[in-house]
């Protein structure tokens, strides 16, 4: 993440089919409690004026072409702050029939279309607190450092035989957990 936007960061809020939870928290960031405007972060009405896109929602198929257009419209260099579980990975809808499934699935589509991926900050949460979103925007801006390292954890899944009676297994587990008393 660069230091391109150190003086001021103009933010465009792009809702790709979100439930409004993240969206009102994005607005909350500009309300008196956080008031990011004092840090030079400003909400703008057009992607053409923006440096950073605050991206919410799991990307529905109906919104997809417009989302791509809006992302393309932001001048380079640009950055994306993916706010909320839906934007980060599709959230509860990740495999639904009408949902692309978050920003990474969107980036795969951008790859297929030959559009470069913008640098991205992920802010998970459902919805994330405004403070977290603020941190994400400031991270994109290079004002604060990243606190977490990227780590990919893959667990080997062993094939297990399906239990004959799930209830029995659960009852046993509960018994074992309680130390023998049923």
């Amino acid at each position: 993440m660069g230091t391109w936007f150190r003086r001021s960061t103009w933010v465009f809020h792009l809702n790709s089919g979100s439930c409004n939870g993240c969206d009102i928290e994005v607005l909350n960031m500009f309300a008196p409690t956080q008031d990011v405007e004092r840090l030079g972060v400003k909400l703008v009405g057009s992607p053409l004026h923006a440096d950073v896109i605050v991206f919410t929602g799991p990307v529905t198929f109906q919104a997809l072409p417009y989302v791509i257009e809006a992302l393309k419209a932001v001048p380079n260099p640009k950055a994306v702050v993916a706010c909320g579980s839906c934007a980060c990975g599709g959230g509860i809808w990740h495999d639904s029939y009408n949902v692309v499934g978050g920003i990474n699935a969107l980036y795969e589509i951008l790859d297929a279309l030959g559009i470069p991926r913008p640098p991205t900050v992920y802010v998970p949460g459902c919805p994330p607190k405004p403070e977290a979103m603020m941190y994400g925007v400031l991270l994109a801006r290079g004002m604060v450092g990243q606190r977490q390292r990227r780590e990919v954890y893959v667990e080997e899944v062993k094939e297990v035989e399906a239990p004959q009676d799930v209830r029995e297994v659960v009852a046993k587990a509960v018994k074992a957990f309680r130390g023998g008393e049923a």
């Binding site: 979100s18 929602g57 529905t60 919104a63 809808w93 029939y97």
Partner: peptide
Amino acid sequence: FVHRGMEK
């Protein structure tokens, strides 16, 4: 634009 197929 926000039809997410939640009933399904």
